[in-house]
Amino acid sequence: MNIFRLTGDLSHLAAIIILLLKIWKSRSCAGISGKSQILFAIVFTTRYLDLLSTFISLYNSCMKVIYIGCAYATVYMIYMKFRATYDGNHDSFRVEFLVVPVGGLAVLINHDFSFMEILWTFSIYLESVAILPQLFMISKTGEAETITTHYLFCLGLYRALYIFNWVWRFYFEGFFDLIAIVAGVVQTILYCDFFYLYVTKVLKGKKLSLPA
């Protein structure tokens, strides 16, 4: 555990809680892609199956349980509790175009051809693109609530911090996981355009809206 890893995890946790609080306080999930949230629930479920087989640390187990619990709570709020506020018409990204290729890639390129390892690889690949329905929705409507942009910023920051964590681990532990690193870099690149808008608009007190 290093400082980048810890702050990365906390940033991830902050993102998840910001989103839950936004929906809960406003009693609305307007502007939130339910499809991205379903993908994240799938990501956590397929990655954290090792909760049942391997104990790593109390920290590790607690965070996994919290991430999974929050992911399903978010999906429940969007599709059940506050379903009436869900903007399904604008959430039109075709997720099969992500899930099918990612599934194929996980079977082809993995560290070990075993059930758990392929599911883990699938979750790593899927996480790297799971935000696309959300970004697609924002580009379609041309705007995002400020609280939604804070959520996206924390989520992107988590990924950027993980890259620093891998640099640290490579230098000080001689460790690297190519699958996690490549997927993590792809995921971070997807946020670059958003980071630019966040810094130039949202941090200056303006609402995030895209030019028509």
Partner: peptide, 10 residues
């Protein structure tokens, strides 16, 4: 193997 086993990262 180069992978994290056990997977300590989240």
């Amino acid at each position: 193997s180069l992978s994290i086993n056990p997977k300590d990262e989240l």
